[in-house]
Amino acid sequence: MQKLNLPPYDVNLRKMDGKIHIFDPIRKKYLVLTPEEWVRQHFLQFLIHHKSYPASLIKMESGLKYYERNKRTDLVVYNRAMKPHLLVECKAPDVKITDKTFSQIANYYSKFQAKYMIITNGMEHYCFRPDASKLVFEEEIPEFSDL
């Protein structure tokens, strides 16, 4: 898999049914290793080990209904009161982050009302928050204690 613009970690891989799988410590299971899953797992580890987000407050691929369609957020971090505080949308490294990606996470925001949103493809990371009728981009991804 491609080297990402995220700190490396000790990846737990296993070959099953002829495919490589990566271990997800939140869901406590192995998942087929796709480029998007590679980004999702690296970003998860970044949040836990470099930004001090408690694993117990993170939910992976949380389902939601949006205009009668089933959708999934990649990663949701809750605060200690179990209210969504951070939404993360992950794309494969070769996927360009476009206005369409921002629209996608904005749709998820309308359901979750998290304080922060992050879009990443493992190479580029955008952290922002809504403020009145505009988006305010953060220079850095906040530490959990800053939420």
Rank of each mutant, 00 (worst) to 15 (best):
C90D: 00
Y108N: 10
D17T: 07
L47H: 03
L135P: 05
H125A: 03
V32L: 13
Y9P: 04
L64Q: 06
E68T: 12
P54E: 02
Y66L: 15
C127Y: 02
L75Y: 06
E124M: 05
F137W: 14
L64D: 05
K65N: 14
E36H: 14
D17H: 14
I118R: 02
M60R: 14
I119H: 01
L47D: 01
I58G: 09
Q2I: 14
G122L: 02
S56M: 03
L57A: 01
S52L: 12
F23L: 10
I58P: 10
R72S: 12
L87C: 11
Q41V: 09
K115H: 05
R27T: 05
K3C: 01
S103F: 11
K29M: 14
Q113C: 00
K65E: 13
V136M: 10
P25E: 02
L87V: 08
E140D: 14
E36L: 10
F144Y: 14
H21Y: 09
L33R: 09
V77R: 00
L135Q: 10
T73K: 01
K19I: 07
D24H: 03
V11A: 13
N121I: 00
D146W: 12
T34K: 08
F23D: 11
A81F: 08
L135F: 15
Q104Y: 04
K59R: 15
I118F: 00
K91L: 05
C127A: 08
I105V: 13
T34W: 12
E37L: 09
K28W: 06
Y116M: 04
L33D: 11
P93T: 00
L75A: 07
Y108M: 12
L4F: 11
N70Y: 02
D94V: 07
F43H: 01
N121M: 02
A106N: 12
K96Q: 13
M16Q: 14
I97Y: 12
D24R: 00
M1Y: 14
T120G: 01
R69D: 05
E143Q: 15
K29A: 10
E124S: 06
L86K: 03
R14P: 06
I58L: 15
K28T: 12
D146K: 15
Q45H: 15
E37C: 08
P8G: 08
K19P: 04
L6D: 00
L135S: 11
K29R: 14
L31W: 03
I118Y: 01
D17W: 14
Y116P: 03
L4M: 10
R80D: 09
K111A: 14
A81E: 13
N121L: 01
L75F: 06
Q104P: 08
F23S: 12
M82P: 00
F128C: 13
G18P: 05
